[in-house]
């Protein structure tokens, strides 16, 4: 080995950087987000009526796109009624439609958003819902 000391130091830095996620994966490493659907508004509904504007799978994947489109349609195009794929009509409003059922922002939105470091800018303009238990 020539200049062994320096090369070994370099390799140690390399291995150290690579090992960071393994060593410091964090205390929440095994935590799993569990968005809660037990708001009073949802519980009031009969079991069969507990449906979002679109299917659960669709909402899970596409809710951000949907909300973005709603914003554009309402704010820019002046449209206010959304017709879902099942033909049902909803008022396009984050605060009055979405948050009416999902009034638990911290236990519903933030649960997954925090887990994946997503910081939507909804609440830059909208007023956060007041939650009783924090």
């Amino acid at each position: 080995m020539y200049n062994g000391g320096k090369i070994i130091i370099g390799l140690i830095i390399f291995v150290g950087l690579i090992a960071l996620p393994f060593v410091f994966s964090g205390k929440g490493a095994s935590a799993k987000p569990e968005p809660k659907l037990d708001t009073p508004e949802i519980l009031k509904l009969p079991e069969t009526e507990r449906k979002c504007v679109e299917s659960k799978e669709y909402m899970k994947r596409e809710h951000m796109k949907l909300l973005n489109e709603w914003r554009d349609w309402v704010v820019r195009d002046g449209l206010t009624i959304y017709t879902s794929s099942s033909g049902k009509q909803y008022t396009m409003s984050l605060q009055n439609t979405c948050m009416k059922c999902h009034s638990n922002k911290t236990k519903f939105c933030d649960e997954c958003h925090n887990y994946t470091a997503v910081k939507p800018y909804c609440w830059d303009c909208h007023i956060k819902p007041k939650e009783k238990e924090l």
């Binding site: 490493a29 095994s30 596409e62 997954c112 887990y115």
Partner: peptide, 18 residues
């Protein structure tokens, strides 16, 4: 689009060797 939460569960499983 795919299930980001699921992906993170997988990656966290990898780094914690579970």
């Amino acid at each position: 689009k795919t299930d980001v939460v699921g992906i993170k569960e997988l990656t966290m499983g990898l780094v914690t060797f579970k």
